[in-house]
Design a protein around this nucleic acid. Structure first.
Length: 686
RNA sequence: GCCCAGAUAGCUCAGUCGGCAGAGCAUUUCACUCGUAAUGAAAAGGUCGAGAGUUCGAUUCUCUCUCUGGGCUCCA
């Protein structure tokens, strides 16, 4: 079966004339043809052999059988498993590099890892040439030829010096090899260690650590440094597509050279590839920018400039409902509402430190007769002024100030993205001032509050990130950092919320929790944040009088649930694919009279429903009923009510719900009662 | 900010090898009055993103800018 290209739950990985066992730690051991499980167990230990994530063998089923019959469980990697997809994607990226070097002589290549759903490879073309769409198609064609040629991937190992010689005309490969040489002598650093360096780990993933470098050759002219593993030969590949070309900095360094990155997707079967492409189409259909236009919710007029939106009536209705709900919850949650202006004298941002650290992210200054003014990039300094406006007692704490505060940030032009990254946006922002003793309880109840509000908007799947101190850049004592970090951790544990610790990822002023939510099609969005701040209370010299009649500095918490109202709106729009639940729908009910004779009844009923607080409109019988229904469906309205002779006679509606079956003759009062229940249920906090 | 690709009617798009700009949907009007996803006819709708250059002539070619999309970087 060698080279037969079996896939789909069957053997994918087969090597030439040897057995390769892939161990869970990412290393690989090779055994000569004919080795048995006894040999394997003797060499690497039975436990490790059992835990192996994959094995390559020579297409001799007898060898495999002997491995298995000996009792060692050696997993054979298949194309429809996660490690299998990883291997075939990485192998496809090698083939792409091979095709590129053939079509573009002199191309330098750097790294080409497997990523979610696919792979990429970064290139530098001679004379600063760049890829275009036609180049991509040409590369695809060449790749298919290589795949058809059924070239075996042959692994070999060499010394670092030999590798440097082999890749003498590949400067990026040489740089990686040099880094690995340095790494071989350096102590092993765990991922949890603050000194852990991602980029070194990436390099280490390319090659073996320990003085040798492994390379894979799959034809006379193409060899690439790689730790492996790979599929045994190129014929095992084939269900791929090159998706796009993009610029990418070498090692992600903005000051470094810009390479050409080609992204591709690769799967073990045509069905899996088609399914993936279909998923992309579905995600595209839910794109909030597309839906915002189709549903007439908002727009980004050219005349306004980049990253600035205007809200049309329907979008504004949804936004108002979101904001009303938020205000209501905060009102009941012990928050006090404040308002602050959109711009301020630069002295304020000098005091807060924003000008010193964040000036590039702020709109440029406005010179005025009595000073220099800036649009506010944050609400916190202003809330601190409110705290400081008079002497505070411990009896007032925790003091929770809340504002739907609109801020302006000069996001770099290339980073703008619809509502998700925008230059003027509104935070559901609160700053909580509390004592050290109150910190634990405050954070715990805050986490309750955050999750409850998110659930009310239809999200159920959450994960959290806990970002801890970066000792190289932080203010505040060890003691207070430990205490705050512990408070955040305890709150997460108490909730049983899954969380990852991001070491050293905290802002300089304090640790934080970020909440990610999964939407209806499984994408993850970072929304809420809870941040401790030991910096601003110091800078603004905030204090309260304690029960010991002495002055103390409060701890400050920043927190936002939506994060930004605009971004949250965008996420909701994609989550619901524009079909907002009844409590948020800008138009909940549309009444369609069958003919002109029923228009009066339709308008009377619409007025009656409006008086009960529902959002209702009527479309008169100028068009055919079918057309008006179609139009209402495209607008994704929760309820279409058709009224004709029967309904006028019986005081009823023909109810056509979104995603449900038509029901004729529903009594008017029954419909109103049921809709009221649905609306009330929709926004209930869980 | 950097790399690539774009910008034509409200929307989705076609087109002009440089010579008065096109469709469907939406809009308006007229006819039709219809029971659950597209009735028919007509009208109106455009400085072809902005500016400069080349040209007898530019929406089309060149350059700059603006904005958008995909990435990279960034998001204190």
């Amino acid at each position: 079966m060698t080279g037969s290209g079996r896939r789909g739950g069957r053997t994918l990985a087969v090597a030439m004339a040897e057995i390769n066992i892939f161990l869970p730690d990412g290393t690989q051991r090779s055994f000569a043809e004919g080795s048995t499980a006894t040999d394997v167990a003797a060499s690497i230990g039975r436990g490790l052999a059992k835990a192996a994530v994959a094995a390559e063998f020579d297409g001799h089923e007898a060898d495999l059988t002997s491995l298995l019959s000996d009792g060692s469980t050696v997993a054979i990697i298949t194309g429809d498993s996660e490690p299998g997809r990883h291997i075939l994607r990485h192998s496809t990226s090698h083939v792409m590099a091979q095709a590129v070097t053939q079509l573009f002589p002199g191309a330098k290549f750097s790294i080409g890892p497997a990523i979610v759903d696919g792979f990429y490879y970064d290139f530098e073309l001679p004379d600063g040439k760049t890829f275009n769409e036609d180049d991509l198609r040409a590369v695809e064609v060449r790749m298919r030829e290589i795949i058809k040629a059924d070239q075996p991937f042959v692994r070999s190992e060499m010394s670092i010096d030999e590798a440097l010689e082999l890749f003498h005309d590949q400067p990026y490969k040489q740089e990686i090899i040099e880094r690995v040489r340095a790494l071989a002598d350096a102590p092993v650093v765990s991922e949890d260690d603050p000194a852990f360096d991602d980029s070194v780990a990436d390099d280490a993933a390319e090659v073996e650590i320990g003085g040798t470098v492994s390379v894979y050759r799959n034809s006379a002219e193409f060899v690439d440094m790689c730790r492996g593993p790979h599929v045994p030969s190129t014929a095992r590949l084939g269900h791929f597509r090159l998706m796009k070309v993009a610029g990418a900095y070498w090692r992600g360094n903005e000051k470094g050279p810009m390479l050409q990155r080609i992204y591709g997707t690769a799967w073990d079967s045509k069905a899996a590839l088609d399914e993936h492409l279909h998923r992309l189409e579905e995600a595209e259909k839910r794109d909030h920018r597309k839906l915002a236009t189709e549903l007439d919710l908002l727009s980004f007029p050219l005349e306004l400039g980049g990253g600035l939106a205007v809200w049309h009536p329907k979008g504004a209705t949804i936004r108002k409902l979101m904001e009303d709900y938020s205000r209501d919850r905060h009102d009941n949650g012990g928050y006090q509402f404040v308002y602050t202006p959109h711009l301020a004298n630069g002295k304020l941002f000098e005091t807060s430190g924003h000008l010193a650290w964040y000036k590039d992210g702020m709109y440029p200054p406005m010179e005025m007769d009595n000073g220099t003014y800036y649009m506010k990039p944050m609400n916190c300094p202003m809330h601190c002024l409110i705290f400081r406006s008079r002497q505070r007692s411990y009896r007032e704490l925790p003091l929770r100030l809340f504002e739907l505060g609109t801020v302006y940030r000069y996001e770099r032009a290339g980073t703008l993205h619809g509502l998700m990254r925008i230059r003027g946006f509104t935070q559901d922002d609160s700053h909580i001032y509390c004592t050290e003793d109150q910190l634990q309880d405050e954070i715990a109840s805050l986490l309750d509050f955050v999750l409850s509000v998110l659930r009310a908007f239809g999200f159920t799947d959450f994960t959290a990130n806990l970002s801890t101190r970066d000792p190289k850049k932080s203010v505040g004592s060890d003691e207070i950092w430990d205490k705050a970090t512990e408070a955040l951790r305890v709150a997460l544990d108490r909730h049983g919320l899954a969380y990852k610790i991001k070491h050293g990822d905290a802002a300089f002023y304090g640790p934080k929790i970020d909440i990610d939510v999964r939407d209806a099609i499984g994408r993850s969005w970072q929304l809420s944040t809870i941040q401790c701040d030991f910096n601003l209370p110091e800078r603004f010299e905030l204090e309260y009088v304690g029960n010991d009649n002495a002055r103390h500095q409060p701890i400050m918490l920043h927190r936002a649930l939506f994060g930004s109202v605009e971004r949250f709106f965008g996420v909701l729009l994609e989550h619901f694919a524009g079909a907002f639940p009844a409590w948020l729908a800008p138009i909940q009910v549309r009444i369609l009279p069958v003919a002109t004779a029923h228009e009066e009844y339709a308008h009377v009923q619409a007025a009656a429903l409006r008086s009960q607080g529902f959002r209702v409109d009527v479309v008169d019988a100028n068009d055919q009923l079918g057309k008006r229904i179609r139009s209402a469906k495209l607008e994704k309205l929760p309820y279409v009510l058709v009224v004709g002779d029967d309904d006028v006679a019986n005081n009823s509606f023909g109810v056509n719900p979104r995603g449900g079956d038509v029901q004729r003759g529903v009594p008017v009062d029954d419909f109103a009662t049921q809709l009221a229940e649905e609306v009330a249920r929709g926004s209930v906090a869980v």
